[in-house]
Amino acid sequence: MPQLLMIEDDARLAQMVGEYLEQSGFVLTHATDGKAGLALLEAPTAAGLPDLVLLDLMLPDMDGLEVCRRLRALPSDAARLPVVMLTAKGDPMDRIIGLEMGADDYLPKPFEPRELLARIRAVLRRRGEAAPSARIMRFGSLEIDRDARTVTVAGEAREITSYQFDLLAALAERAGRVLTRDQIMEAVRGRELEAFDRSIDVHMGRIRAAIEADPKNPKRILTVRGVGYVFARQQD
């Protein structure tokens, strides 16, 4: 499910928005001020980075424009996250400055939750259309070539089965997102699906043996206990 981060000091509003968006298939994490929001973006949890940031313009510790400026300056994938600004201020200049700072959209308060949902979907859709998936995915020394269907680590070929390649590619394409076993299997639909969830665990163990420096202490494919797996974004 798409992950959202809402940086908003109004806890009641954040709860209302979170409940509404969760009904539409989103997962919302709430940060009460700019410092807490930036901390989540600089050091993501096991769930990884969000897919989009909802950013209030008026925060208790720093304004949303400053948060947006710092976000865009981060030396990581977080710097490219789409941002929708929310504000009770009606000054058109704030909207102009926000967009110039790198915000993708701007919604004045009070707003209808349905409009917020529509804008979130539109921003995510535009981002997806503007960034077609690369045929070769690189994560530090790990390289996954979709066309050649090969996996190399530091230039050295690693042997995995065709089915394991599909599983690895499905995770890598969704780097930073926690996927359940069902979601992983759904992502490789069209292949002959395995009969039991635990077969995914066996395949993941073999993929780790192929690509991890220490398969018993993996750094790339992480287990999220009780949920599934996440492909970590960090570089080697």
Score class of each variant (00 low, 15 high):
D104P: 02
P108C: 07
G128A: 14
E112D: 10
E115T: 07
A103H: 09
F139C: 08
L116Q: 07
P108D: 01
P113V: 14
P132I: 09
K109Q: 14
M137V: 03
P108R: 03
A103F: 12
G140L: 09
R121I: 02
L142K: 13
A122T: 00
E100M: 09
A130K: 15
P113A: 01
R135D: 06
I136F: 03
V123H: 00
R126S: 05
M137W: 06
L117K: 01
A103K: 07
R114C: 13
L116A: 01
G128C: 03
P110Q: 06
A118C: 00
D104V: 00
L142F: 05
L107S: 05
L142E: 03
R138E: 08
D145W: 13
A130E: 15
E143W: 08
Y106K: 03
D104C: 04
R126N: 05
P132F: 05
I144T: 05
E100C: 04
D145F: 12
P132M: 14
M137F: 08
S133Q: 14
G128V: 07
S133M: 13
I144R: 10
P132L: 10
K109T: 08
A130L: 15
G140A: 12
A130D: 05
P113Y: 05
E112A: 09
E100N: 15
D145Y: 11
R138Q: 01
L107T: 12
M101E: 14
E115G: 02
L117S: 02
E115C: 02
L117V: 02
R127D: 03
A103V: 08
F139W: 00
I120M: 09
S133K: 12
A103P: 11
D105L: 05
R125Y: 11
R138V: 02
E115H: 09
A148E: 11
P108K: 08
R114S: 15
P113H: 04
L142W: 13
A134D: 03
S133G: 13
I136E: 07
K109V: 06
G128M: 03
L142G: 08
Y106W: 07
G102K: 11
E129D: 07
R126A: 14
A118N: 08
R125C: 06
F139V: 01
R146D: 06
A148W: 02
A118R: 08
A148Q: 15
I136H: 04
